[in-house]
Design a protein around this nucleic acid. Structure first.
Length: 514
RNA sequence: GGCAGGGUAGCUCAGCUGGUGAGAGCGCACGACUCAUAAUCGUGAGGUCGCGGGUUCGAUCCCCGCCCCUGCUACCA
């Protein structure tokens, strides 16, 4: 019985188009999902959209359409972007779906039933900025106006809301996060621990107004309509995606999730509010919350308003989706911030993909065609396989640790080794010496085995290019889809004898750098 | 302000509990080779290890002060 692996990304707020930051997270999660599929695990990869909130309603009004039409359009654009990038999600959750709304209300009711004192009503009073959709503190107010929305007048609002008793979970959350297993990387766990030490405050569970959202299932006893507030609206997508409130079937099969991949900016909600909600509802906790860093552009935080942007279409068009995925995964650590620049992209494309790996494939295939009639000769594994094994194991360990950037370094160590091996063996000399034909066979077969290993290991990163390489090497059509292509320690077993290679177009055509 | 993490070759970064010559990749220069996408392989280039003190036989790695950068410091998500 293969292991299951349930992985989610954050659901993106439907108030703008997908950008580099969104893409980085989805690509990272996709790489992990594909890696686990390669290991033969049963994988469920879920992503989606967070579609409620006043901002959505406002921008819809500005566009002159209904909120639903607005989020339908934005969801479509996100899905197009993910298709272009090869994101292999299994399900796309939308918080405006019936299934989700039912699940959210059921979760809240479940908490009312199992932890009745966890919800309570309280009057909240303060200056409310409609622009921000939030209450503002004194520091955020200048001349009686919100600093971010100087054209709007702040409203003094007193409203009675439902609150969730997050503070009651302080000790359990501290223990959970201090364990080091629940929230990673460690630096993020430390931040949350210090936040806990400052004292946790209870959080709003509803807003006392009708809005673009899910009606809170219970009123406050004063007849006011209550709309479910963001945490309770969005976070439960992870369980509604697998059928909640039905806790048998799908839910039983997939929950608890193996990893929530999120951005470091929303760590708090996933590391504090979400587990507290689940404990209150007596549901199992996620196994891991992984907070990745940000992709910076020229050292600056990606920001539409600051004009620091990068067009995804442009990024894909330039070299194709696979090189873009490779570049982001190689250049930006998954546990910290990293930089994006076109110059760097071109350098890495030419150095890593065109020159190092692409050319290794090219020269190998060309020699087999030239010296062996395109048929891979029989040969036993040799020292190249033996030395590569250590790198494959390191690759595997890095992938298990959710550090794809490090995993790539190990694969490129084998690529460098492959090119050195070719030069050392000098097949073009062996080919001229009738007494050394066995050596030539051994060399060429070793290279094909290595390229195959690399194509397997890199297929989560560059699925299209890796499939193309395997095709050029003459691997069976279903080679990658065959279970067990990647085992524990990155071990792979396969026989390349007799494969018919066929040199096609360059895997990664060299680009002239302007 | 507080807490946390950083400032190492042009660029991106490794350097575990202090000790022969401070490293890797990319880029760059020179040499070799010719199977290959003018690719590859080899060699080199010599960076005050943020600044100033201190501890020590000896510190990039320990302590103090300072400068600079980043993150967190809860209801936009």
């Amino acid at each position: 019985m293969p292991n299951k692996y349930y992985i989610t990304t954050a659901i993106d707020y439907a108030n703008g188009d997908p950008h580099l930051g969104h893409a980085f997270e989805k690509i990272g999660a996709d790489v992990l999902a594909r890696y686990h599929r390669l290991r033969g695990e049963k994988v469920l990869f879920v992503t989606g959209m967070d579609e409620h909130g006043q901002k959505v309603a406002q921008s819809a009004a500005k566009e002159g359409r209904t909120p639903q039409a607005q989020v339908d359009e934005i969801a479509r654009r996100f899905q197009e972007a993910w298709a272009a990038l090869g994101i292999s999600y299994d399900r796309f959750v939308r918080t405006t779906s019936e299934q989700h709304k039912i699940g959210v209300r059921a979760l809240i009711e479940r908490i009312f039933e199992r932890a009745p004192d966890n919800f309570y009503t309280k009057t909240y009073a303060g200056w409310y900025c409609v622009g921000c959709e939030a209450f503002k503190t004194e520091e955020e107010i200048v001349d009686g106006k919100c600093v971010l929305h100087a054209t709007r007048t702040l409203e003094w609002v007193e409203e009675r809301n439902w609150f969730f008793r997050l503070s009651a979970y302080t000790d359990r959350l501290r223990t959970l996060i201090a364990s080091g297993n629940f929230l990673q990387p460690r630096s993020r766990a430390n931040e949350i621990l210090s936040l806990i030490d400052q004292g946790l405050e209870d959080v709003s569970a509803s807003r006392a107004r009708e809005g673009w959202g899910i009606p809170f299932p219970r009123d406050t006893g004063e007849g006011e309509p209550q709309t479910t507030y963001v945490w309770f609206d969005a976070l439960p997508n992870y369980i509604t995606a697998v059928g909640f409130p039905d806790t048998s079937g799908e839910f039983a099969k997939w929950w608890p999730v193996d990893v929530h991949v999120i951005g470091k900016d929303i760590t708090r909600f996933h590391a504090l509010i979400w587990p507290a909600m689940l404990i209150a509802a007596e549901l199992p906790l996620p196994k891991l919350v992984w907070a990745h860093g940000f992709v910076l552009l020229g050292g600056d935080r990606f920001s539409k308003s600051a004009g620091v942007t990068l067009d995804l279409q442009d990024a894909v068009a330039r070299f194709g989706a696979d090189p873009f995925r490779y570049f982001l995964m190689r250049e930006v650590p998954f546990d910290a911030d990293g930089n994006f620049s076109w110059e760097r992209f071109e350098e890495r494309y030419n150095a890593d993909l065109a020159n190092a790996w692409g050319n290794l494939a090219s020269r190998t295939i060309a020699m087999i065609e030239k010296y062996r009639g395109a048929i891979v000769p029989p040969a036993e594994p040799n020292e190249l396989d033996a030395v590569d094994a250590a790198d494959m194991a390191a690759y595997d360990a890095a992938m298990q640790d959710n550090l794809p950037n490090r995993a790539l370094e190990y694969i490129w160590a084998t690529v460098a080794r492959g090119n050195e091996y070719v030069d050392r063996q000098a097949p073009w000399k062996l080919a001229k010496d009738p007494t050394r034909q066995d050596e030539l066979d051994a060399t060429l077969a070793a290279l094909v085995r290595q390229l195959t290993r690399q194509a397997i290991a890199l297929s989560p990163f560059m699925p299209g290019r890796c499939a193309e390489l395997l095709s050029q090497l003459g691997a069976p059509a279903d080679f990658l889809a065959t279970p067990g292509r990647l085992g524990d320690g990155g071990v792979t077993t396969f026989d390349v004898t007799g494969w018919r290679v066929a040199k096609g177009a360059s895997l990664f055509p060299k680009r002239e750098i302007a």
